[in-house]
Amino acid sequence: MSQPRPEFELGKDLVGLEGLSGETITGILDTAEPFKEISERAIKKVPVLRGKTIVNLFYEPSTRTRISFEFAEKRLGADTVNISSVGSSVVKGETLVDTARNLEAMRIDMVVIRHPSSGAARFLADRIPSNVINGGDGQHEHPTQGLLDMLTLRDRLGRIEGLKVCIVGDIVHSRVARSNIFGLQALGAEVAVCGPRSLIPYGIEQLGVQTFYHIEDAIQWADALNILRLQLERMETGFIPSLREYNRVFGVTRARLEKAPRDTVVLHPGPMNRGVEIDSAVADGPQSVILPQVTNGVAVRMAVLYLLAGGVPGGAEAAKQESA
């Protein structure tokens, strides 16, 4: 049996990547490696979470994240229940803390929460003994997305340390941006953001992040671009004048990418607005790792579930062999 690394320290919950050490994040990514292969098998099951009950508590619409978590849970043999805000007692005005306590009373083991309000995952984690995994809280963090982005980058470029990664687009409203900033910095990458000033939050330079207001400059600088989805709502609320102009000024196009001094890796957390923040030629081109991101999402979530359930980094391979 392999022992946990002394530096590896994951608490009861995964609320965010802020404050996690590079060793801990590397431990999670390493744990994801053996899980990747399971999804390639004919029988995609490793019953390391057999008998565990997991609730996917989604207060916001989500397709990709919810399904990815559900696959991860099922492939590890857990019993899962999905609750969405529509059609549950949430619409009857039950508070988050009461919903959580009721679930707790049914003796669950883990909760994956997606919520429109920043801090909701932490709020829940502080109030119930189950493990809580943040599936995206408001504009705060989306830690498993950050982890799968890093795993995908590591797969493609062989390392994270020393890489220059620029997050492009609506940084103000993005939980993906924050998880990427905290996680990538912990692993020794340089992080920048690029977008119109109206979509870049104040004080971000105090997080050690460089800022570009021209996409051309970002492309010159970066080894990888993580291009965020631009929501239509940002135009309606006056952050930018139009999606058309956004594409003209900030869109990642083939023509712009061709001027890059290196083979820039292109990530996107989805769902994409083709022709707005990213052109199809880029999204479907050779530099895109958008679909590998989705594949890695399941492996990373399996790793997080496994570790929070008491698994140790390096133990996943053995667990896999036992079940094979």
């Binding site: 920043s118 408001g138 705060h140 939980r175 924050r178 004080g203 971000i204």
Partner: peptide
């Protein structure tokens, strides 16, 4: 308050 703490927490700022 708008600033680095609000930015890190993902909370909307009042400048």
């Amino acid at each position: 308050n708008e600033g680095v703490v609000a930015t890190a927490l993902g909370l909307r700022g009042l400048p």
